[in-house]
Design a protein around this nucleic acid. Structure first.
Length: 739
DNA sequence: CCAATAAGTGTTTTT
DNA sequence: CACTTATTGG
């Protein structure tokens, strides 16, 4: 069947795969569920299975649908297969969202969706909902837009429209159903689809139009799903629509690595799969090719605390390896400092390079301290998947101009750019424009003269609308890079940046131009719409984000699917990890899985670390050691502690740099909970005494002085010999001077 | 309408 | 701390 392929292949599957992997690759008798432990070669199974289908079974590449969760994963998979074949096959390896988008672009008409829809992200959702709430005079303090964004997305993940969500009792908040209703009405009218809509509207459309479904089923003869444990209800329904009743499907997943519950992922899908797909075959992959046994033992021990697991036991023949280090530092600054010096030590002792190291953390905000400490130590780093280029203000603005020109109903884009640069159109005019053009009859271009605004504003508004119209016209004739240049100029945006001296923004626009140019070279037929779609569905980490010769800073979520010789997991503190918002047992279990994911990324060495005090939102707070540390087998852990200038209750001098970073406030991170630092020495016997500015005090080691400043827990004492020092009240042996 | 400044505030993870 | 919103004066 593959007579068109030039080079006959000879892949030695038996040599490249172990017995279980080989069985999974060759199994086609019924639906297949591969339970693949961390590092057990699941990507390998999928890629070789696809290769096997094409090479041995004669499948056309385009008749295989492979779905992943991240663009990085799909890139990699496609690349590996193309490498095996030595040519660029026409493979459908895409994320759920981009597959859905592509199907909707092709079959939208038949499913009641204008195929020129615009995709909006979570930020845009929030803007739109804010606007809706404001119009309805709903107090955004009492009814926060973020909450509605979250609820709407969860409803759509479960395929629930407004009425169904109400019947299900998704929330007791009655306002939600009104918000959801008007939000969705606006999206439909303005031809906007949010991320969840891509799946939601596709699945609902397919259920109503069996013709399209049949066409899709004819096209896709086999389906593979990666990271199956992260599918939500709607995605699972989509898979069922496409793969039932035939059952030509393999899914690969690991219930222990389900970490996206907050966006609707359901581990239950793994169980349900064995029921919904009759005669489903289960193959477990338990041999780990990544880590030393110590790392596997420790992480297995941890994940064992979770309930309702399908249960796997990972093993390796790589040997025992090294103990895991757990380090406690006095502050987050010293934690980063410890990691920096450990990196340098390991490099000189064992010849590691910078890119052998990765630092994982629970929250994006934690990367800052590493960035600053690593800069000081001259350690090159990259923040992977952090602040995203395409989310920068100036990039979104320029893209919004183009989006609005292509879809003049797009109120979200309008909102973003109507006054950028300032052109005499204010909020009031904006609202009138939205009310009288977009929201009422569906296009910015209609009813310009009827807009209810003062005569003095009409000229400016008309000029603005004409400009957008003009961009829309000219977009048909210009190449994407040319169009971009045109927009920079005709909107006055570039001029505005130049006049106000925003040089880095100008540079970012240059970079955007380069990206569009590259896009035009690599896909000569690509339109600007294609480019925009690519970037709106591609916000995550890509391969090119992993700059060689640098240390990687990554959130735990973004670390899934990756591996590094040396891994540092920072911030192992209750309140941070597990995060304090994870309260219910289910949430804690997901945090535990996240910890498991993090640990199992390490190939050779694993470090865990915590800080006794940490600055969060400008305040110093204290945490207990993470419960996950206590859940590890003690005999596999090497406990270390950083002393620094920390003796005698002194918390100054050496940390002066840290202290300068901002003022200190209350230590009470969350009232009502006991969050005492684990540190046992140095407790001030008099910590509850009431010391205020101006008091005379006696320090056990330094003698008498006067308190000249008190900022929350931090006091500055001017001693009688003239020296000034800062202390943390809690750890300082102080008494009030007896009169 | 707009720019500059003051005040306030929320604390996760992302296709 | 970093970001958003409110206020002020031009």
């Amino acid at each position: 069947m593959n007579e068109n392929r030039k080079m006959p292949l000879k892949i030695d599957y038996r040599k490249e795969l172990n017995n279980h992997q080989l069985e999974a690759v060759k199994y086609f008798d019924s639906p297949l569920l591969v339970l693949a432990g961390a590092g057990s070669g699941k990507t390998r199974v999928i890629t070789y299975k696809i290769a096997y289908m094409i090479e041995k079974l004669g499948y056309y590449p385009h008749s295989i649908l492979a779905v992943t969760f991240t663009n990085k994963a799909s890139d990699e998979m496609a690349e590996r297969i193309n490498n095996l074949f030595g040519e660029n096959l026409n493979l459908w390896i895409k994320t759920f969202h981009s597959s859905a988008a592509k199907i909707l672009r092709i079959f939208g008409k038949d499913l009641g969706i204008d195929p020129n829809f615009t995709i909006i992200d979570q930020n845009d959702q929030k803007l739109l909902i804010k606007n809706i709430l404001k119009e309805a005079n709903i107090d955004t303090d009492k009814y926060p837009p973020e909450r509605y964004v979250y609820l709407i997305n969860r409803a759509k993940d479960r395929l629930l429209n407004v009425d169904e969500a109400f019947k299900e009792g998704l929330t007791n908040d009655r306002v939600f159903y009104d918000v959801y209703a008007s939000y969705q009405k606006r999206l439909v009218k303005e031809n906007l689809l949010d991320f969840a809509d891509l799946i939601f509207r596709l699945v609902r459309g397919l259920k109503n139009n069996s013709g399209v479904l049949i066409e899709l089923k004819n096209r896709f003869n086999y389906i593979l799903v990666d990271e199956f444990q992260d599918t939500n209800y709607a995605q699972y329904e989509l898979i069922k629509l496409l793969a039932l009743p035939e059952g030509n499907i393999s899914v690969v997943g690991d219930d222990d690595q389900s970490i996206y519950g907050f966006r609707g992922a359901r581990v239950e899908n793994v169980i349900n799969f064995t029921k919904d797909f009759k005669a489903c075959k289960i193959i477990k992959l338990e041999e780990n090719y990544r880590s030393y046994q110590t790392i596997l033992s420790a992480s297995s021990h941890l994940i064992n605390k979770n309930k309702g697991r399908l249960g796997k036991t990972l093993f390796t023949n790589k040997g025992e390896g090294y103990k895991i280090t757990f380090h406690v530092a006095p502050t987050d600054y010293y934690e980063a400092d410890f990691i920096a010096s450990e990196i340098m030590k390991l490099m000189s002792a064992y010849g590691y390079g910078y890119s052998d190291f990765a630092i994982f953390f629970r929250t994006n905000a934690q990367s800052r301290i590493f960035e600053s400490v690593f800069s000081n130590h001259r350690i090159p780093y990259t923040v992977v998947g952090g602040f995203k280029f395409y989310e920068r203000e100036e990039i979104k603005d320029i893209i919004s101009y183009i989006k609005l020109a292509l879809n003049p109903s797009d109120e979200v884009s309008l909102m973003r750019i109507y006054n950028k640069p300032p052109r005499g159109i204010g909020e009031k005019s904006l609202n009138e424009i939205i009310k009288h053009t977009i929201a009422s009859n569906g296009s910015l271009y209609r009813g310009v003269d009827d807009i209810n605004i003062p005569v003095s504003r009409k000229k400016m508004v008309k000029h603005f609308i004409d400009m957008i119209k003009n961009i829309g016209e000219i977009a048909k004739t210009l190449s994407p890079p040319e169009l971009l240049r045109y927009v920079y100029r005709v909107t006055g945006y570039l001029n505005w940046l130049e006049e106000t001296g925003k040089n880095d923004k100008i540079q970012n626009l240059e970079e955007l131009y380069n990206a569009v140019e590259e896009f035009s070279i690599s896909s000569p037929d690509g339109t600007i719409q294609n480019f925009i779609e690519e970037i709106s569905l591609d916000s995550g980490a890509r391969n090119e984000d992993f700059e060689k010769g640098t240390v990687y800073l990554i959130t735990l979520h973004n670390a899934k699917g990756l591996e590094f010789p040396v891994v540092f997991m920072a911030g192992m503190e209750d309140g941070l990890f597990p995060h304090f918002l994870a309260e219910e047992d289910n949430d804690i279990q997901e945090e535990r899985r996240l910890c498991y994911v993090g640990m199992t990324r390490a190939m050779e060495r694993l470090y865990l670390s915590a800080a006794e005090t940490r600055k969060i939102y400008g305040r110093v707070i204290q945490h207990k050691t993470s419960r996950f540390i206590e859940e590890l087998p003690e005999n596999l852990i090497l406990f270390t502690r950083g002393d620094y200038g920390y003796n005698g209750g002194l918390f100054s001098l050496d940390t002066s740099k840290y202290m300068k970073m901002g003022s200190f406030g209350s230590t009470n991170y969350r009232s009502g909970s006991n969050r005492d630092v684990k540190s046992n020495n140095n407790q001030n016997t008099l910590k509850d005494i009431d010391i205020s500015e101006g008091d005379r005090v006696v320090h056990k080691n330094f003698g008498s002085g006067e308190v000249i400043e008190k900022l929350g827990e931090i006091i500055t004492i001017k001693f009688d010999d003239g020296k000034r020092m800062k202390f943390m009240l809690k750890y300082t042996p102080l008494t009030k001077e007896k009169p």
